[in-house]
C-alpha cells in the first residue's frame, strides 16, 4: 500500500519532470533505480500517449475561431450598449405604442408604418413597435409565420434603400433583424410546412415567396441583389453556428434552397473581399481609387483582424480570415 502510494508520487514526479521540464525517461529511471522495472513501461506508455495527443488545430480553424470570437465579443458589446426597442417586453411595446398613438395621433403611426420609414428615420422605432404589437396580437402560428414573412420583405426593402444610400452599418443591423425574422419563421416550421403544402418538393430550385432567403432578394434589381448577397454572406461568415441552427430547423423542403442561397451569398462575399483586396493592392502599387479605399477601409474594421497571427501581414491574414472556402461552409450548413 505504502509502496503503491510512493509509486504514484514518483510516477507523477517523473511525468512532471518529463512533460514540463524536458527531462528524459532514462534520467527519471536513473533517479529511481529501485522502481525502474515498474516505472519504465508506465513512462513509455505515458510518453507515446503524450506524443499521440500532440495535435494542433489548423491555422485556418484558429483564424476562423478567432474571428468568430471577436465578432461575438463585438456583438455582445453592441447589444449591451444599444437600447433596443424591439427587445422590450411586449407589454412595454404595446403601452409605448398606445402612448405614441394618443400623443401623436394615429396618422403618425400610419406614416411610420410605411416603406419610406427606414432605419435612421426618427419614426423607425414606432414602425418596429407597431410590428411588435401586431405580432403580439397574432395568436396562430401560421398567421405569425405569414407576418414574419411580411416583415422579411419589409427588411429587404429597407436594406435595399440603405445600400442605395451607402448606409452599410444600418443595413447590417437590418440584416440582423431580417435574420431574426427568418429564425422565428424556422421555429414556426410546422405551420410553415402546412402553409407551403405540396407546392414545394425536395431539391426544387425555388421556394415560395416570403419563406427562403433567396426569395428575399427576388424583387430587387440584379446589382442590388449582389449587394444584398454580400451583406448576407458577411453575416453568415460571422454567425456560422446560428446559420447552421437555422438550416437544421428549417422545414426539409426549404433546406436545399436555403443552403444554395447561403452558399451563393458567401460566394458573393468572398468575391467582394477578393475584389477589395485586389483593389487595395492596386492602390498600394500606385493606383488611386476612392472605391478601393472605401472597401479596404471596410475590411479593416472587421472584428478580429486586429489580432493577427504572427508572421502574417495585416492585409493578407485579414483577408484570409474573411474569405472562408464556400464549399466548407456548404458542408458545414448541410451537416
Amino acid at each position: 500500500m505504502k509502496k503503491d502510494k510512493e509509486l504514484n508520487n514518483i510516477l507523477d514526479e517523473c511525468l512532471e519532470r518529463i512533460l514540463a521540464n524536458g527531462e528524459t525517461t532514462e534520467q527519471c529511471l536513473e533517479r529511481y533505480p529501485e522502481y525502474a522495472a515498474e516505472l519504465e513501461p508506465l513512462l513509455r506508455t505515458a510518453m507515446i500517449t503524450n506524443e499521440a495527443i500532440d495535435v494542433t488545430p489548423s491555422p485556418e480553424f484558429k483564424a476562423r475561431a478567432r474571428y468568430q470570437l471577436r465578432a461575438e465579443m463585438a456583438g455582445a458589446a453592441e447589444k449591451k450598449r444599444r437600447f433596443s426597442f424591439v427587445r422590450q417586453p411586449r407589454w412595454v411595446v404595446a403601452v409605448v405604442t398606445v402612448l405614441v398613438v394618443v400623443l401623436l395621433g394615429g396618422g403618425t403611426v400610419l406614416a411610420a408604418d410605411s416603406e419610406n420609414t427606414i432605419p435612421g428615420n426618427p419614426l423607425y422605432a414606432v414602425k418596429l413597435a407597431t410590428e411588435n404589437v401586431r405580432l403580439a396580437l397574432t395568436s396562430s402560428d401560421a398567421a405569425k409565420a405569414e407576418l414574419y414573412a411580411t416583415l422579411v420583405d419589409r427588411r429587404t426593402i429597407e436594406i435595399e434603400r440603405l445600400m442605395e444610400r451607402g448606409k452599410t452599418e444600418l443595413a447590417q443591423r437590418t440584416v440582423a433583424r431580417l435574420k431574426s425574422h427568418l429564425a422565428n419563421i424556422s421555429t414556426l416550421s410546422p405551420a410553415i410546412q402546412s402553409a407551403i403544402g405540396p407546392e414545394i418538393t425536395e431539391g426544387e430550385p425555388s421556394v415560395k415567396p416570403n419563406v427562403a432567403v433567396q426569395d428575399v432578394a427576388s424583387t430587387v434589381r440584379e446589382e442590388e441583389k449582389i449587394n444584398l448577397q454580400v451583406l448576407w454572406g458577411r453575416y453568415i461568415v460571422n454567425h456560422p453556428d446560428e446559420i447552421r441552427t437555422m438550416v437544421e430547423e428549417a422545414p426539409p423542403a426549404v433546406k436545399p434552397a436555403l443552403t444554395r442561397a447561403i452558399v451563393a451569398s458567401v460566394n458573393s462575399y468572398v468575391a467582394s473581399c477578393q475584389k477589395a483586396l485586389r483593389e487595395s493592392n492596386q492602390t498600394q502599387n500606385g493606383g488611386n481609387s476612392d472605391n478601393s479605399n472605401q472597401q479596404s477601409g471596410e475590411s479593416d474594421r472587421e472584428p478580429g483582424t486586429s489580432n493577427q497571427q504572427p508572421g502574417t501581414s495585416n492585409q493578407q491574414s485579414g483577408a484570409s480570415s474573411l474569405t472562408p472556402d464556400a464549399s466548407d461552409l456548404q458542408s458545414s450548413v448541410s451537416k
Partner: peptide, 19 residues
C-alpha cells in the same frame, strides 16, 4: 491530489494493458 495521482497511475497502467 493523492486520489488523482493514484488514478493517473491506474489509468496509464490500464491504457498500456488495453494497447
Amino acid at each position: 491530489e493523492g486520489a488523482v495521482k493514484a488514478l493517473q497511475h491506474s489509468a496509464v497502467a490500464a491504457l498500456r494493458k488495453v494497447l
